[in-house]
Nucleic acid binder design. Sequence first.
DNA 1: CCCTGATTCGC
DNA 2: GCGAATCAGG
Length: 172
Amino acid sequence: MNWTDERVEKLKKLWAEGLSASQIAAQLGGVSRNAVIGKVHRLSLPGRAKAGGSPTATRAKRPATAPRPTNFAPRVATRTVARPTGAVVTKEEVAFEYDEQPVTRTVANVVVPMSRRLELTQLTERTCKWPNGDPLKDDFHFCGNESPDNSPYCTYHQRLAYQPSAERRRAR
DNA sequence: CCCTGATTCGC
DNA sequence: GCGAATCAGG
């Protein structure tokens, strides 16, 4: 691929918006994240404040002394923006509170493992891709727990996904 | 291991 | 100029 004016413009735009190099590379297509970073350097664009974590993934900080509400109401301060190019919905800002309380949660007589609350971009070959929540809402996330081998789901959600009809009856 | 950006250097 | 390989870090 070749750096046309259009592509360079898009690169500048996305970089300014704070997208990571790999995300930009994905949107541009045909280039690696290294190519993007290299180009950013050559263009003398302002780098990121501090290398490492993504600025997009800045988590809301909770005072260590803040008392945990018994019934957490995850106050959300996020907004999603639908982009004209493609049907892509990108998290602009991520700032939700974790409920890092229980490791497990009991729902309807079944033990459900707490999800890692991953975003789409954080999913890999070995993370559970079971979706949680409404994709149109801000609190949408994926389970993200470790999934064995090439399974798309963790051991728990695997059962839900491939539940035999007989067993599904009982669960109801 | 997943990811991030930064740098180097052969092409 | 380009970007894969590598480095350094979370």
